[in-house]
Design a protein around this nucleic acid. Structure first.
Lengths: 202, 202
DNA sequence: CGCATTTTTGATACACGTCAATCTCCGTGG
DNA sequence: CCACGGAGATTGACGTGTATCAAAAATGCG
């Protein structure tokens, strides 16, 4: 494993503008000044900040999403951002390349789509909400790092006890398979069964 | 009242591109081709269309919002749109004027904000969801035309019986005051008490 | 004026919330 | 190395807000 770490370090130095964030680490605060970012890895949570500094879940950004665009308009962030899983962000737009696969119009379309998905995560039975979130966050191989029970609860508008019960239930049903490292039962890393392209019959 | 109607007709002819829609009327269907629109009056509902032609609430557009932007990118609509209250739409962008108060960036920022508001409408107690929607749809004077109970239910992820009970409860509490026309008790038009700019203390 | 649609209301069931205890995992310091 | 403590997760018992089912009333349209 040492060589892998070395490679990562080198990559990091090549693009020195890339930023890393740990779980539950703040990325930026609403009202603050800064850049727009592209989420390269991980899951980012966006919150509105109400009086008394109360935070309310507002949106989710996963790999490929752009966050903080509104600074290009207002000069400051509208929401607060924090890392739900280990994250890697890069400034956006990437000035060097002209490929421009992400125009403002692309970002808008993706934002609308993401919003519709989040709306769906707050409706229906609890188990479907949790499964929906797991599917949204899983990679094509079905591997997924879930946020904490508390964060899942705030995303789906349920209680963390309910989330805990449902994840256990999905584990026992074999839908979620905890990934064990050194024999230790992981609580966040799973393999999600039946995960593939969303084109399969009932 | 005849003169009023005449005036409206004239306005309509002056801007012949303006479109009117009645309650529950389809505005456009997903996959179809068409323009982007600016909502001038009324409330528009956007749905994702799943297999078996099942519709799922995806988003809401109120006066000032832009809908159907994705056609500028994909050439067709991503969602289906229908009128929740009587609506008036105008093509966007308005080519004639250069004021451009609505750049793509403005639309993106507003879309994010609207999405966060809709997320909030699907969390917390039923009464707060209904009140939240009423506040979102009310004009500065506090007058509001609500969607049908069924549509409110789908927006807030509740059942229409629950919506009915809660609106009655708000009526009895005086928070919602039904507007009577010719002595008939309206079920959609209300005056919302304590509605003003969102800048007032507790 | 009559029928379809929407809304209201009641009785009952259940999914999820609430409260509380326990357990696991980890970092800290003696 | 182990005692300690805190954060997150699990589990149980019980309460409640909303769903569900059913029926009637109000509204609106042809």
């Amino acid at each position: 494993m040492p060589p892998f770490v070395t490679v990562d370090r080198q990559k990091l130095q090549k693009h020195r503008s890339i930023q890393q964030f740990d779980v539950s680490e703040a990325i930026y605060a609403n009202g603050g000044e800064g850049l727009a970012w592209r989420v390269r890895k991980g899951v980012v949570r966006l919150d509105t900040v109400a009086p008394q500094n109360k935070r309310h879940f507002a949106s989710l950004a996963i790999a490929g999403d752009i966050i903080g665009c509104e600074t290009l308009l207002f000069g400051c962030y509208t929401f607060s951002a924090s890392a739900l899983t280990p994250c890697e962000l890069a400034p956006w737009p990437e000035g060097d390349r002209n490929r421009s696969n992400d125009t403002l119009l692309d970002v808008l379309a993706k934002t609308q789509q993401r919003a519709a998905e989040l709306i769906a995560l707050r409706g229906g039975q609890a188990i479907d909400r949790v499964l929906g979130l797991a599917r949204l966050l899983a990679d094509p191989a079905g591997n997924v790092i879930l946020p904490t029970r508390q964060d899942i609860a705030e995303i789906t508008d349920l209680r963390f006890e309910t989330i805990s019960r449902i994840i256990k239930q999905l584990e026992r049903a074999g839908t979620l398979d905890p990934i064990r490292l050194a024999g230790i039962h992981a609580t966040r890393s799973f393999h999600l069964a039946g995960q593939a392209c969303p084109a399969r019959g009932a």
